[in-house]
Nucleic acid binder design. Structure first.
Lengths: 202, 202
DNA sequence: TGCTATTGCGCAATTC
DNA sequence: CGAATTGCGCAATAGC
């Protein structure tokens, strides 16, 4: 009884901490990657690639390319699986590639067209404002995720604990039941004997 | 019985997927942040700040400073809490920072001393090799973490399911027990009556 | 339409 | 030394 209320409060929190959940994780990686292959190029064209300092950061820009390939999130894309096949998803890091670069035909359409589409200029105060806001949101979101994980673990732990108690209770009840059944069967025998005795005495 | 074996197999996996676990998450953020404040400076000195293309990426380098402050992982460090205090964690991106920046006294000691401690040259093939390896490790690790989370959720779900079954079993046993008790009490009464009848008839 | 929330990713620091 | 973890910022995008 006590433990019930204790557990339920935590579970309450736990339950409330899963809003949409399912759709993003799994579906995203697939859906958005197939969808991205159509849109991304335009996105790519209109962002960066012709920035003030040109090719700032090795991380961001090329990752766009990776992601576009739709294979980037495989656990061990390139060097881990030996050196066989899969020319895909290995073409990140133009920074390093500045020396030897493979302009895969997939990337070409995005690499040209340095259209002055007014990229959001990474020096722009507005850009920094957005970034900072997003960084805050990211921290918040991750914090939330961490708390969620902890709560799930707690929930699991408590459920396990509760489970053991329930199992013990079941064992107890079963035992009790056996005892009563035994007693009852004794009564039955007793009654039968008495009945028999009574009949024979008549 | 069936469900037991089914559950336990999953739980097996689940259990085995938590190696050290606790120490890293919570303790790290504290321990390493306090520890970092001593070491980080040297680290900072020996990395970047004067790279070939000067300040490539806004992300990596300055973040060192943030982290050093030991406050970066607070959910809402700067702008979120109004505009009061906490000059921390907003001072990344020297590029933009060139305009308005508060060089908090905490940061000064790290900002100076641009000693030429032989940074590992981001163009170095060895650097790229290291990075690529680490990136692979990171993907692997995160994949693992994701799987771990899923398993914890499954474990919790199955435990809950099992819990309900156990509770129902308990209800059933209790019911059964009550029935037997009732029967027994009836027998008792019956026996008592019979006994009384017997005595009175003598 | 614009902003926040999520998510995958790479980087660097640290741990193991 | 090298792999594993972890916090963080970036960019894409889902969601409202």
């Amino acid at each position: 009884m006590m433990s019930d209320s204790r557990v339920s409060s935590v579970i309450q929190e736990w339950v409330s901490s899963f809003p949409g959940q399912v759709h993003s994780q799994t579906l995203n990686s697939v859906a958005s990657n197939s969808a991205a292959s159509t849109n991304q190029m335009t996105q790519m064209d209109m962002i960066s690639y012709g920035q003030s300092q040109g090719m700032i950061r090795g991380g961001g820009d090329d990752r766009g390319a990776e992601q576009m390939m739709g294979l980037s999130y495989l656990p061990y894309p390139p060097s881990c699986l030996g050196s066989a096949a899969s020319p895909v998803s290995t073409n990140h890091h133009q920074s390093h590639a500045s020396t030897q670069q493979d302009f895969s035909p997939f990337l070409l359409p995005t690499l040209r067209a340095p259209v002055t589409k007014r990229s959001i200029s990474k020096d722009s105060a507005e850009y920094r404002l957005r970034r900072e806001r997003n960084n805050i949101a990211v921290r918040k979101s991750r914090d939330k995720a961490r708390r969620r994980i902890v709560m799930t673990q707690q929930r699991a732990g408590q459920l396990q604990e509760e489970n053991q108690k329930l199992q013990m209770r079941i064992a107890q009840l079963t035992q009790e039941l056996d005892t009563l059944k035994h007693i009852l069967s004794q009564r039955h025998l007793q009654a039968a004997e008495e009945g028999a005795a009574g009949q024979s005495s008549i």
